[in-house]
Every structure is written in C-alpha cells, then in structure tokens.
Simulated scan of single mutants.
Amino acid sequence: MYNSKIIGLGKYVPDNVVTNNDLSKMMDTNDEWITERTGIKERRWVKEGDGDTTATMGVKAAKIAIERAGIDKDDIDFIIFATLSPDMYFPGPGVQVQHALDIKTVGALDVRNQCSGFVYAISVADNFIKTGMYKNVLVIGSELHSHGLDKTTRGRGVSVIFGDGAGAAVLTREQDTSKGILSTHLHSQGEHAEELVVKAPGMGTRWVTDIIEDDNKDDESYFPYMNGQFVFKNAVVRFSEVIMEGLMQNNLKKENIDMLIPHQANLRIAQFIQKKFQLSDDQVYNNIMRYGNTTAASIPIALTEAWEEGKIKEGDTVVLAAFGSGFTWGSVIVKW
C-alpha cells in the first residue's frame, strides 16, 4: 500500500477585478451589505475577449503545478477535473486539458460535485494512487461563474458571491504511510438538492426544442438559486462533523490542526468553524475577501496561496473541508 502526497500546486485567476462598488452600478447593492453578509470585498470575473474559459484557466494552473512538482507532463498518468461550469455541456474539460497540455492518451475524469468537487476529486486521486493503479495524478478545480450569473437586482443575493478562477495539484506515491493524505471523508444528502441549484438546462426539466425556441430572459431556472439561511445552518454543522470525523480516524485532536483550508463559501461560515475549533487566525486560511466563492477552485487556490506564503510547512497537519450543493460535503486530512 501507498499513501498519496501533494508535490505541486498552482493557481490562476483572471486579471479583471470586480469590487463591491462595481457591482453597485449593476444592481441595487452596496459594499457594506455584501461585506457584512459574506466577507467578500472583490472577486475576479473573466472579461469578454480575454480568452479565458474554465478549461484554459485549469490548464494555466496545471502548468504551474506540474512545473513545481518537478515532473514532466508525460509523467501524468491520469487527469481529474472538478467543475460545475464546463466549457461545453459535453464533453467535459478533463479531455480538453489532456489535449491542451499535449499529454499522452491518459484517462480524464470530470467531477460534478460543485463546492466539494475538489475534495471529491482529491479522494478519487488518492485512492487510485493508494491501490497502485496510477503514480502521478493531476487534479484541477476550475470555475467560470461570471458568464452564468443574473447580474440584476433580482439575482444579487447569489451573484455577488461568485468569482472565477482555477487551482491545481499534482499527487504522487508516498511509501511512508505516516505522510501525505492520511484519509478522505465524503457525504451527501440529496433531499436538499433544490436548496442550492441551477435547474436548467437539464433534460429532466425541459425539452431541448423548448430551450432553443423560447425567449428565456425571464426564466430564472437558468440562474443559481440558493436558500441562503438554510445552506448556512447546514454548512456549519456538516463542516464540524466531517472535520471531526477525519481527526478521529487518525487519532488526532483539534489541537493538532496546523492549517485548516475551508471551502471559501462565506467568511462567516469559516469564522464560525474557527471559533468552534478554537483555532487562531494563523491556523485558518481565508481568501474569499479577494476572490469570492470560486466553488471547486476555492480550496486549491487557497491551498496554493497558503503554501506560497509559507503558512504550510513539512510535517504540518493540514485539513481541507468543503460543503455545498447536493448537499455534498467532505474533508481531507493531510500530513504535509
């Protein structure tokens, strides 16, 4: 048996910064309202004509991660791409990455688990490596939300939250099973699927001919819906549960956490968890104030920045945790 370990990290965010004041010119909102409820001050949105897509942003992050891993692109044995915003309905962006990086014909898998997508993708990569099936796995989380948001007052409750960006990690074998990814923990509760949802386009809701023929400007099913208070209440409970689950499986206590990287959904959720686990500011990494919620990209972007800033060191116990649409949630316990 092997463990897997992260040997390379990379991120990419668009250059275009959209502040809360910028949003106040598009919809009835203001900086104080957004900051108080979410902690977000600005986010990155792809600017028309820049050429960034979910796949291309993922490729840019992946190139950095592969270079930092100190391996050649052809050493990659498998690609896993987590996103809710693929360039095309199908195929998914995993194969686009394989082509863009000119990697040999390895497998490419797409993960559609929204905010917990990167945690799920890491779990899949970890188990592929642990079983000996693959040695080096490239995991990407990338999102382009801004093209699919309702940027009017009607959609302000959701649209102010989301940003664009990508993060990537390269995982490889680690023979010392006291190091690397110690365990992953995944859960779902589909009864709440419609509490955080985009219903269309979906074959279960509308015929394709109707979608093509109708004037859909007033069809809200194409935009994200979120029952904010309900999501918040569930998130703080599930975050706590799944973090404790991971710690207990590895005979660790909350005092053993050196760095917690929570999914960047809402700064208030992260602060609630920080207080509950009695962690200092140096033990939790948040960047939602700069990037908003980048869904599957949020954890790898934050993990990359925390590592770049020297906040994660060899031997540290690092915890990744996410909760989101589905509902799905999960955690990863890492000995760095």
Rank of each mutant, 00 (worst) to 15 (best):
A166I: 11
R206K: 15
A296E: 06
S298R: 04
N266H: 07
E195A: 04
D72G: 06
I181C: 01
A297D: 10
K275M: 08
I288Y: 05
Y89I: 15
M289W: 11
R156M: 14
A82T: 06
Q175M: 07
N250A: 05
C115G: 15
N30S: 12
V17A: 05
G148A: 12
D316E: 12
A62C: 11
L247G: 13
E245L: 08
G167K: 01
S298L: 08
F323E: 09
V139M: 05
G132E: 01
I212A: 12
Y2P: 09
M226L: 13
V158P: 00
V332G: 07
A100T: 10
I273M: 08
F128T: 00
I76L: 09
D176Y: 01
F327N: 09
R43A: 06
N20A: 02
Y291A: 09
G107H: 03
V198H: 00
I261T: 08
V17S: 02
S298A: 15
K233F: 00
M1V: 12
R238T: 08
V17D: 04
V332L: 10
I71A: 03
N287C: 15
L9S: 06
I333P: 04
G92T: 03
L279W: 08
G202V: 00
T153R: 10
T54K: 00
S240D: 14
S159L: 07
G117L: 02
T328P: 04
Q114S: 14
H187E: 14
A322Q: 11
D72I: 00
Y2I: 02
M133V: 12
A297W: 07
M244H: 03
T19V: 10
L303N: 02
F323A: 12
F81C: 05
